[in-house]
């Protein structure tokens, strides 16, 4: 029941997170920033724009991105296997990238290609995260992870750190906002969407916030206070990093993910395995 509610309200929750984030970001840049409800104003605005598209397939992929992200959210909340939820996320990436590829715009194609590089960077780490959670709690089942006696964060500090490393890639935050790269490719995959179609993409990004922060929440195990603390901590951490780094290029991102984050996760898993035996 809780899962269904969370799924249904995940765009709203994500919108709030995004709104708060924009304010936090503005304050970190010594600006006043927009109101907290700004994402919803944007939502209303985009809804009232005249629809325009490059072609039907491209526009429909924007909507599919939203739907499949929401569906991935539903699977994360109501399914029982974390791995499956992670793989469902790939479907939403498929919708986004295929849509972006389908138009003959170099920015869009470069954005899609970079988005794929994001996938290559974060996906192994996220899968290793699921595996390590299984290792510690003995189950891929999200409900079981959330009720297990063990608090995963204490056994998986390195996995948590590497997840903090990939969160900017998942959420398109600096230093890894490579796929969006507003000053280079003007938003990358979302560039050709406008009006209501862009709204779908814009809102799907909010759901991704909930999706990602929920995975952070899992690190608290049955200790929900700790989970909430971790979410808040990672939120502040991600925003601080976002505001104090320049954007890197995709090769550097790949190197960072592959030669630092993945070994870090594997090391942690290795230690847990050795410790258990």
């Amino acid at each position: 029941m809780m899962g269904l509610l969370l799924t249904l309200f995940s765009p709203i929750i994500g919108g709030f997170i995004y709104g708060v984030e924009r304010v936090v970001k503005a304050r970190m840049q010594s600006r006043q920033g927009p109101p907290v409800l700004q994402p919803f104003y944007d939502f209303v605005k985009l809804m009232q724009k005249r629809p325009m598209m490059v072609h039907s397939f491209h526009a429909s992929m924007g909507i599919m991105y939203f739907i499949s992200t929401w569906f991935a959210m539903a699977v994360l909340m109501m399914g029982n296997d974390l791995l499956i939820a992670i793989f469902f996320h790939v479907i939403s990436v498929l919708a986004l990238t295929i849509g972006a590829f389908s138009v003959r715009s170099s920015y869009s194609i470069m954005g899609a290609m970079r988005e794929l590089m994001h996938v290559v960077s974060y996906e192994p780490v996220v899968i290793l995260l699921a595996v390590s959670l299984y290792l510690v709690t003995g189950s891929f089942d999200i409900a079981k992870i959330l009720t297990s006696d063990i608090t995963p964060i204490f056994s998986l500090p390195l996995v948590f750190i590497s997840f903090l490393g990939v969160m900017p890639m998942l959420l398109h935050k600096s230093p890894f906002d490579i796929a969006e790269a507003h000053q280079e490719i003007v938003g990358g995959p979302d560039i050709e969407y406008s009006g209501p179609f862009y709204e779908a993409v814009y809102t799907a990004r909010w759901i991704e916030y909930v999706y990602v922060y929920f995975i952070v929440f899992l690190f608290g195990g049955s200790n929900y206070f700790l989970g909430t603390f971790l979410v808040v901590f990672s939120f502040i951490f991600i925003n601080a990093v976002d505001n104090s780094t320049a954007r890197l290029d995709y090769k550097k991102m790949l190197k960072f993910a592959w030669f630092i984050l993945i070994p870090l996760s594997m090391l942690n898993i290795f230690f847990v395995v050795v410790g258990a035996n």
Binding site: A26, G33, H182, V186, D190, S194
Partner: peptide, 16 residues
């Protein structure tokens, strides 16, 4: 001056 106070963003992308 911070025109983002009014929700204004410099999108740079005419489509949006």
């Amino acid at each position: 001056f911070d025109i983002e106070r009014f929700g204004m963003l410099n999108r740079g992308n005419p489509k949006q």
